[in-house]
């Protein structure tokens, strides 16, 4: 039923770049295996390229619905205490992260 047009080649350093973009780390010993798996998935996905979609509008929503607008009203009260009770590091009402250098 499907024609595979081309098999996408993904290299290990591509995967490392993606991992950096996504802020995940692939341990060196797993990099090759992860690369191979992703290449297989992308191979599957390359089947899409065989379909002619020149005249097809991308479908963002299954019902082709449009955005509803909300009245401009303040409905949320301050819940800082509840939210920060589950935060890993806070001080004086601020969330803490390692120093950001600009």
């Amino acid at each position: 039923m499907l024609t595979v047009v081309k098999v996408m080649t993904v290299h290990q350093d591509d995967i490392e770049k993606l991992a950096e973009l996504a802020r995940v780390r692939i341990p060196a010993e797993e990099a090759a295996e992860v690369t191979a798996r992703i290449a297989t998935i992308l191979g599957l996905v390359d089947q899409l390229q065989s379909v002619d979609t020149a005249a097809v509008e991308p479908m963002a929503n299954p019902l082709d619905a449009v955005q509803r607008l909300r009245a401009d009203a303040v409905t949320e009260a301050n819940q800082r205490e509840a939210f920060q009770a589950i935060a890993p590091a806070v001080e004086n009402g601020l969330y803490l992260v390692p120093k950001v250098i600009e």
């Binding site: 909300r70 401009d72 009203a73 303040v74 409905t75 949320e76 301050n78 819940q79 800082r80 939210f83 920060q84 004086n92 009402g93 601020l94 969330y95």
Partner: peptide, 26 residues
């Protein structure tokens, strides 16, 4: 606006830190 673009939290300037950040904003 009175409230934020995607949530019902207030937009007033100068409030205590994180007192106008609701679950959507967080």
């Amino acid at each position: 606006t009175e409230s934020k673009i995607f949530s019902g939290a207030a937009t007033r300037f100068g409030a205590e830190p994180n007192t106008q950040a609701c679950a959507v904003d967080l």
